[in-house]
Simulated scan of single mutants.
Amino acid sequence: MTNTITTRRQAKARAMELRAEARQQGKSLSHARALEAVAHELGYRDWNTASARLSNQPEIPLQVGERVTGRYLKQPFNGRVHAVRELAGGLGFEVTLHFDEPVDVVEFESFSGLRQRVSAMVSEDGVSWDKTSDGIPHLIVQREETFLV
């Protein structure tokens, strides 16, 4: 696992794994000691060094200009990332997308509501917390190469 750690978020997840493993063995491992252990696994002197080095790696799942695909208000789209902003504390991201073709977000046949540029707050997995009345996320977005929606 340690050879795939490139971000602080991944390193902290590894520290939680180490703590869980210690608990299963009936041992106690503080969060600080787990972070130090992860730093050593990665070849760093201590957690502060590892954290400083890893913090230079991007943790944003989407980059400006990147091709994306997904669903907006249940409608499929392809487009580009126009803007990305990390929300406070790394809770998620505000993304602005520009669709290649406008998406009709109205389900009624009597009129249309076309959208070509939208903004939404999403988790690091690219799924919005806001949902339609039937529980479907407003936005599901991911890189075009890894489309799984």
Rank of each mutant, 00 (worst) to 15 (best):
H40E: 15
S110G: 11
V127T: 09
A52C: 06
M121S: 15
H138Y: 15
R45I: 10
D100V: 01
V122T: 02
Q63G: 07
E144G: 03
E41K: 05
S110C: 14
N78T: 15
F147M: 09
R14Y: 06
E86W: 02
A32F: 08
R71Y: 10
V106M: 15
I136C: 11
V81W: 00
R85N: 09
G70C: 02
S123K: 05
A88D: 13
D100K: 01
N78C: 12
L73H: 09
D130L: 12
T6H: 14
H31E: 11
A52V: 06
P58T: 06
Q116F: 04
A11I: 00
H31A: 11
E86S: 08
E109D: 13
M1R: 11
R19M: 14
D104T: 08
E59R: 06
I136A: 14
G70L: 01
Y44D: 04
S28P: 04
Q57F: 09
E124G: 11
R8N: 13
G135V: 09
R71T: 10
R33M: 15
P61R: 03
E66F: 05
Q142K: 08
G43K: 05
T96K: 03
T4A: 15
G26V: 05
E41D: 13
M1D: 10
H31Q: 12
L35K: 09
L114Q: 12
L114Y: 14
S51M: 07
T2A: 14
A20C: 07
A22I: 05
E109F: 12
Q10C: 00
Q10K: 08
V118Q: 01
Y72P: 03
I5N: 01
R143D: 05
V38S: 03
Q75I: 07
V64M: 02
L114T: 08
K131D: 10
S30I: 07
R85L: 07
S133W: 10
R71P: 00
F77S: 02
T96A: 07
T69F: 04
P102Y: 04
E59Q: 09
Q75V: 10
D134V: 14
P58C: 03
D130E: 14
D130C: 09
F99P: 05
R9S: 10
Q116W: 01
L97C: 02
G126Q: 01
M1N: 10
L42Q: 00
Q75A: 14
L29S: 06
L91F: 13
A15W: 00
M121A: 14
V84H: 05
D130Q: 15
R143Q: 13
S55V: 05
A20L: 12
S128C: 04
P76F: 07
H31D: 11
G65A: 01
K74S: 12
F111K: 13
V105E: 05
L87R: 08
V106W: 15
V64T: 07
L114K: 13
S30H: 07
Q25V: 00
L35I: 00
P61G: 03
K27E: 11
A11R: 01
I5Q: 05
I140Y: 03
